[in-house]
Design a protein around this nucleic acid. Sequence first.
DNA 1: TTGAAAGCGCTAACAT
DNA 2: ATGTTAGCGCTTTCAA
Lengths: 342, 342
Amino acid sequence: MAKIGIKDIAAKAGVSIATVSHAFRNPGRVSEQTRRKVLAAADEVGYAPNRLARSLRTARSGCIVAIIPDVADNHNSGIIKAIEKTAHARGYSVLLGDTQGSPQREREFAAMARSGQADGIILMSHRMPFRIGEGQLDIDELPPLVNGCEFAGYDELPMVGIDDFTAAVDAANHLIDLGHKDIALVTGDMATTSSRRRLDGFSRAMADAGIEINDRLVVYGEYTLGGGEAAARSLLMEKQRPSAILCFSDEIALGCMAVLRERGFDVPGDISVIGFDNIPFARYVAPPLTTIAQPAADIGTTCAALLLDLIDGKRPDKMRHVMPHELLVRESTAPVFDGRRT
Amino acid sequence: MAKIGIKDIAAKAGVSIATVSHAFRNPGRVSEQTRRKVLAAADEVGYAPNRLARSLRTARSGCIVAIIPDVADNHNSGIIKAIEKTAHARGYSVLLGDTQGSPQREREFAAMARSGQADGIILMSHRMPFRIGEGQLDIDELPPLVNGCEFAGYDELPMVGIDDFTAAVDAANHLIDLGHKDIALVTGDMATTSSRRRLDGFSRAMADAGIEINDRLVVYGEYTLGGGEAAARSLLMEKQRPSAILCFSDEIALGCMAVLRERGFDVPGDISVIGFDNIPFARYVAPPLTTIAQPAADIGTTCAALLLDLIDGKRPDKMRHVMPHELLVRESTAPVFDGRRT
DNA sequence: TTGAAAGCGCTAACAT
DNA sequence: ATGTTAGCGCTTTCAA
């Protein structure tokens, strides 16, 4: 059977194609009787209006693209789940833009908004995926875009995320209050704004406490269990072992804890560990992980709502949406103990 | 600045719109010189061909939709990550169809393939989201569709997944070999084909070993940490406590272990726990989780490759793609110990 | 309340 | 090698 279209339904129902269109899109503009007739004809043959044609005509794709580093990351997936939910509730679909950190892919996904495939972008990256100025795009003619958790460098872009600086201060102070001085840091990619701000926060807290940071205890870790594992191994090679490790993600923290356990270190007896994110697993592991909670669902929901408003032409009332973070003290952190294994 | 289109580029480059189109799509059909001229003109104003118009004309959206129960589930997200990667490599985008188990949403997402918004569907559900027969779709005029991990009831649909029956047999036998008799089962939704087959496998293994199944030890659990938590709590209320728990997902298993630990039970000393999936966390927890590994990435890759071939008109050479599962014995299972706490 | 008709921006067959 | 042109299937004025 050939693909059936609006014309077939019009013929079948004995009306014009305009009426069929209205029956679907503007129920108020056709008589109830006609509408029923049309819908019945459509249902009979399983007709569904072609979305592409509609989108072309209206210049609205009904899609947004979520550009994120890794769907398989627990924090990311919590955010994107909320994005999808919010978008769906407002009639939008979401295109998955898993970049694995590749700038090239970020650009490819972002380009979907320039080719009409998407009406807007949620960008969880610190890189601007468009060329701005220099005969190219002006900042005010970007496609609707909201920055999630990172900052791409333009104040004109709405962004939603936590206050990374303060969050790191809170995490560091928790450790400092517990008497820790030899604090190791496992950061994320230092090219990202979130990692930089967190490092700044950590530095500030340490400085305020009059503790000198041991640079050899500041290492980079990919935001994965394996990243944490590698970081912990390198940290344990140091002669001056840390009494606490502050990790920029829970997956890193959990990776660290596995290594510590394997090497016979007790957490938190010998070494305290604190993470970031509060992924669902955090409170189920042993010991339950102390962490800085981020409201992943709220972040996703806010990103999506903001973007959809932007698409609808509403100017956001504010550009910086700072979501609350919270120090969740569980059992992976404890006061320094002099008799600890080092 | 008004939206610029192919006509503007044609004018700018002093060629026809057909030539512009060819310069982009069929580089071989225009002279190198013309091509460059066109591309330069396009680049100068940041022109990108309208994807919707192209899709409408070619009747190809370049999108597939992945219908999955929950992106935030670690097993699901591993699969969808591979789907996205494979699709992207072949020039396709993926629409995220997170259903939270809702049949309604499954239908909505599936409908995207009927409205031209997607060229095919990867369906990780046991429900057929289209009405088949009765004046509606015939089974052979379904949109390209591949079933992932579940079976929607039509042999005509290619499907990829593990052999759930045998996998459950393997898991049960592992426990039986360890001397366990009071084995609890935390299943998934029994409406799903995977859960049913796993239950069948478990029953078979128990029957073959001459062990009677205690129905009170067979409970349902949502595939989440919370689901495992709830299941474990209910299991611990039974007077005849299990010496082992077989869970249909790792998240359930990890949820169980947290409750067991909280109640003072040693795993595996008092109670053995085995999961399903082998999510990344499984080997990082304490004790590392014994589980039935599923090749999530391969499943995703195979689903996508199969679907893309289907879209290209290639008939799959076989309908059932059984991916290998593997029993990974780690430290959460051990022989029954008579002196165990019960 | 309904219909006719002009596109949306592109592709592809056909012509030059 | 390049151009002309007829749609793809819909939405949306405008007229009846």
